[in-house]
């Protein structure tokens, strides 16, 4: 008896809430709505116990209705409640984007970094030994990254001088990267977009005042979080060493690993997408 009755109460309140929010379609209200719903479902039967007469009065009609209530519907609502609860956990986690060992600081905080950098303002050009793995295919050679005419140019080629690809990234981030050349056998959308996106991460850094900043409690290294999606790990001076992708309920995924000494560009660049990886080691 209790279960069907609870179900009945829940259903009534579900309808009320539907009515109250029927005009609201903004996703921002969804978590709030779910919380209210769960609270009501949990507490209403308890509150009803306070009113013995109401319970007894309802019992007969409720019994009749519940007797014919579809048991499948009950299961359906139980499942729904589980999904709502899971959604709340997900939404809470997704919006928090916290990192163990780091604490958030405000952008105006003294702990903050003035600039972040990978290729700094003095950068002109760099030559890298290159190792590209695309599934079972291994391509090796040399890559030159050069600043030219308000743009960064990335040209990769084999040891024998055969070009693999030639991309241009304009300083103006709004302009799409230009593919000047890509070897026919490499000209796949997946790969082209990956190269554009990954080098875009290296050349177009997030603005500090538009990012969430976190400081390591021990070594004072920093993390910049861009749009709750990308994590830029930097040292205390603002030199980026790792770029990670934020993942809900999963460890953050490292996309780019960099190492740098005193020069104006990274010594090594490792771009890792599992079966596709690009590794660059500076040629002195």
């Amino acid at each position: 008896m209790i279960l069907p009755r609870r179900h009945q109460v829940a259903k009534n309140h579900k309808e009320n809430i539907y009515n109250a929010f029927s005009f609201v379609h903004l996703s921002a209200f969804v978590p709030l709505w779910l919380i209210i719903k769960l609270v009501l479902i949990g507490f209403l039967p308890v509150s009803r116990w306070c009113n013995q007469n109401a319970i007894i009065a309802d019992l007969k009609s409720a019994y009749n209705k519940c007797r014919i209530a579809n048991h499948k519907q009950l299961i359906f609502y139980s499942k729904r409640i589980s999904i709502y609860a899971f959604s709340i956990v997900l939404l809470t986690l997704a919006s928090s984007c916290s990192v163990v060992g780091y604490k958030a600081v405000s952008n105006s905080n003294d702990n903050n970094i003035a600039t972040i950098q990978i290729f700094d303002d003095n950068f002109e050009k760099a030559l890298y030994k290159t190792d590209i793995n695309i599934y079972s295919t291994n391509l090796t050679g040399i890559t030159i990254i050069k600043k030219k005419d308000s743009a960064m140019r990335v040209v990769s080629m084999s040891e024998l001088g055969m070009k693999y690809f030639d991309f241009e990234f304009h300083n103006n981030q709004q302009k799409d990267p230009v593919v000047h050349y890509i070897m026919a056998s490499l000209n796949k959308n997946l790969l082209v977009n990956m190269i554009k996106k990954d080098f875009g991460l290296l050349f177009y850094l997030p603005k500090i005042n538009e990012s969430k900043v976190m400081v390591n409690v021990e070594d004072k290294s920093k993390i910049l979080i861009k749009n709750n999606k990308l994590l830029y790990l930097s040292d205390t001076m603002g030199t980026i060493s790792i770029i990670k992708k934020y993942r809900v309920l999963l460890p953050n995924k490292t996309i780019i690993t960099l190492s740098k000494t005193a020069q104006s560009y990274p010594d090594t660049i490792e771009i890792n997408h599992g079966k596709i990886s690009l590794n660059f080691v500076n040629l002195k």
Binding site: I142, K146, G161
Partner: peptide
């Protein structure tokens, strides 16, 4: 001596 002439980059890579 191998010279790779990249015209657009005004660059010659020498191997």
């Amino acid at each position: 001596i191998q010279e790779k002439h990249l015209w657009m980059l005004d660059e010659v890579l020498i191997s």
